[in-house]
Simulated scan of single mutants.
Amino acid sequence: MSFIRTMIVNGVLALVAATAAQAQQRPPIGLYGSPPDAMIFYVAHGAAGACGPGCSDWIAAEGTVQWDSYKRLIAILDRQAGHKLPLVIHSWGGSNLNVAVSMGRILRDRGLDATAGATEVEACAGKPEADCFALKRPGGPLDAKVSLPDPACDFACVLMLAGGVHRSLPQGATVVLAGRSIRNRRAPNVAPEQRESLTAIFGEQYRKYLHEMGVEPELVDIIDAIGEGGRPVVMPPSDWARLHIVTSP
Rank of each mutant, 00 (worst) to 15 (best):
M1I: 12
S2M: 14
I4S: 09
T6P: 10
V16M: 08
T19S: 15
A20W: 06
A21R: 11
G33E: 07
P35L: 02
M39V: 10
F41Y: 14
Y42E: 01
Y42P: 03
H45W: 11
A48D: 13
A48P: 10
G49F: 07
C51T: 09
S56G: 12
D57S: 15
V65K: 00
V65L: 06
Y70T: 10
L77Y: 06
D78I: 07
K84V: 09
L85W: 02
H90D: 12
H90C: 10
G94S: 15
S95D: 02
V101S: 05
M103C: 04
M103N: 00
G104V: 08
R105C: 08
R108G: 08
G111V: 11
L112C: 09
L112S: 02
T115S: 09
G117K: 01
G117W: 06
T119M: 08
T119P: 05
E122W: 14
P128C: 02
A130R: 12
C132S: 05
P138S: 05
P141D: 02
L142F: 05
S147I: 14
L148A: 06
L148E: 00
C157H: 03
C157Q: 00
G163N: 01
R167E: 01
S168C: 05
L177G: 00
G179Y: 04
S181A: 15
A187P: 00
P188W: 05
P188K: 06
N189A: 15
E193P: 13
E193A: 15
R195V: 12
S197E: 14
T199L: 14
E204F: 10
Q205P: 08
K208W: 10
E212C: 03
M213R: 02
G214K: 01
P217S: 05
L219E: 00
V220H: 09
I226N: 06
G227W: 08
E228V: 15
P232H: 01
P236C: 03
S238Y: 01
A241P: 00
L243T: 04
T247C: 03
